[in-house]
Design a binder for these strands. Sequence first.
DNA 1: CCGAGTTAATCAACACTGTTGAGAAACCGT
DNA 2: ACGGTTTCTCAACAGTGTTGATTAACTCGG
Lengths: 351, 351
Amino acid sequence: MPTGANLHALRDHNAAAVLALVRGSGRGSGSGSGADPGVSQAHLAAATGLTVQAISKIVRRLLDEGLIAASGRVTSGIGKPTTLLRLVPGSRYAIGVHLGRDRQTVLLADLAGRAVASRVRRGKLRAPDRALSAVAEDIAVLLQDIPDERVLGVGLACPGPLDHRSGVLHRVTGLPAWHGLALRDRAEAVLGRVCAVDKDTTAAALSQPGPADRAFVYLADGLGAGLVLGGRVHRGAGTDAGEFGHQVLDPDGPACRCGRRGCLEAYVLADLGRGAVDQAAARLAQGIGNLTRLLDLDEIILGGDAVLAEPEPYLAAAHAAGAPRAEIAQAGPEAVALGAAALILRPLFDP
Amino acid sequence: MPTGANLHALRDHNAAAVLALVRGSGRGSGSGSGADPGVSQAHLAAATGLTVQAISKIVRRLLDEGLIAASGRVTSGIGKPTTLLRLVPGSRYAIGVHLGRDRQTVLLADLAGRAVASRVRRGKLRAPDRALSAVAEDIAVLLQDIPDERVLGVGLACPGPLDHRSGVLHRVTGLPAWHGLALRDRAEAVLGRVCAVDKDTTAAALSQPGPADRAFVYLADGLGAGLVLGGRVHRGAGTDAGEFGHQVLDPDGPACRCGRRGCLEAYVLADLGRGAVDQAAARLAQGIGNLTRLLDLDEIILGGDAVLAEPEPYLAAAHAAGAPRAEIAQAGPEAVALGAAALILRPLFDP
DNA sequence: CCGAGTTAATCAACACTGTTGAGAAACCGT
DNA sequence: ACGGTTTCTCAACAGTGTTGATTAACTCGG
């Protein structure tokens, strides 16, 4: 909300821009085919629009902090060879927590946004105190060999409407013990670390890199979407955006649990209930087509247990509906937890 | 695209933040009920997060440039009275051009974003050269009494897909002479001023102030929407977002001119074609409900000739569909032209 | 009436940003 | 071995917002 920016903000902004470019270069080489290419300072200057001298200062700071490191020199034609810079994944970590209705995942992610280790508990989500105690236990195990000062914080993702900024949950359907809970403050008290809270679908959208305009479509016991628009997460006026499943296709259609009739989710879940996966996929693809046309998206990521159980029909249908670059979530069932960790990591690359 | 920011960018950013707050205060008093309240420097400091000293410097610069002025002092309790600051509407101007299929509007807007004067031509849109000549004539008339250095530039809004950044049109349906035209460059050459180009619906969304998450739904010979998300215009990956009318409700529905079947636009236009305004409004409201739920919008503005001809049914239906704060476009038929001018004015308040 | 208290806004010195300008380091070509 | 080229750093600078001190203008209480 503070619209003004001072020198400190300027510095962080530029450091983040540089870090994002360094990280991006490590990802550019595709699916782990070889050593990451890295970036030169000269390239960073061109990409950011800053002078090479300014980049030199920024890079030195990042080197001192251990966030980046030199990764060898490459002679690119004539002149002094470039010293390539790469991210140091082990220099910082974040914890991601997925508080799912039937499965709770605690995950350790490194600075590069990759999952290092994780612990999964199956079973209904318990009351806040007991659930957070379990999370604390899992975190302790995961952080055994990690120096405390390298851990930036804990991101928590859970279902239902909530206020991302204050970290307060609203009315989580089916979980009365969680209604109105100030989850972020409670988690910070129990875990003793900086915490962030967001919706599961929103977190999932951050679980992997991608173009500036993309959506994560999440199909499990409900149908929702996490939106990234213009490179930023779109949460909406009441932080309740992404109600992708409740677009009404036919006001005289079957009743939906949201109270309206003919919602996309109602159709899809009904199809799934009677095992008609292909039909569910076709219906979902129709919604995805509408979504991509409305927002002009570049990429659709499909995730959630229902999709992961049988991905092909959904992928095929999405492609047929004209969706650009539809893919299955790389992190699979850990997408939400990994995205939750990204809630903490992102500010380093973003502001 | 340049992700880095230098001191110059920082200065502009903060100046814009201050200007936006000063402008916002002038609008806060509602619909012209009285004198605008204005803002104090102390308030600006609190709102921006900057120190009062920094605000003092910024305000002095803006005063020197004539963009703002003191508007009297108000004694607010104890202590030295506040000197209120307000925008000087006549200090800068921008031209907005709406190149509509059946109507071309050229409009002069002041710094406050209000229409000062306008000229309208009715008739089919001609070939680029002749259309731009007509625009040049209209601009000359409108700028008769305005010093040239106060005119910031010309914003042009036109239908069809286009690339906002390069100002190049794509395939404008029904206007072959405009296909692939580098409109911005051509306009800059003909008009001799800085120009910006954007879609008509996008421009319309900028025609009036509003909450950070809002949409302008435009119903005329087609159905589209301009989206403002998180305070920024959403154009999408291919600058083609806002295809609100082409959400498929029923894949077996009536054929739409876009090639698909069962699009919302096809239903609404068919309803309108046979004079069933109430049914068209109901269908449109269904789409608006979907839109607001998906993006969690705070406000819907309704515009376009079809809506302006008979606003009430659309307003009523939108409210019934659960849309928050649905309103008719304040600028009426000039909404697109006024928004086109805002393309030029916005950077002063935005970056 | 008048001084203490309070709030608004400015003046002055400072820390830190990226920039301009110059130079050192490391390679290729001939 | 030398000039040319590119990468990166060192040094001095302009300009930002910040901290600290001062002036301006009002209310309030005696």
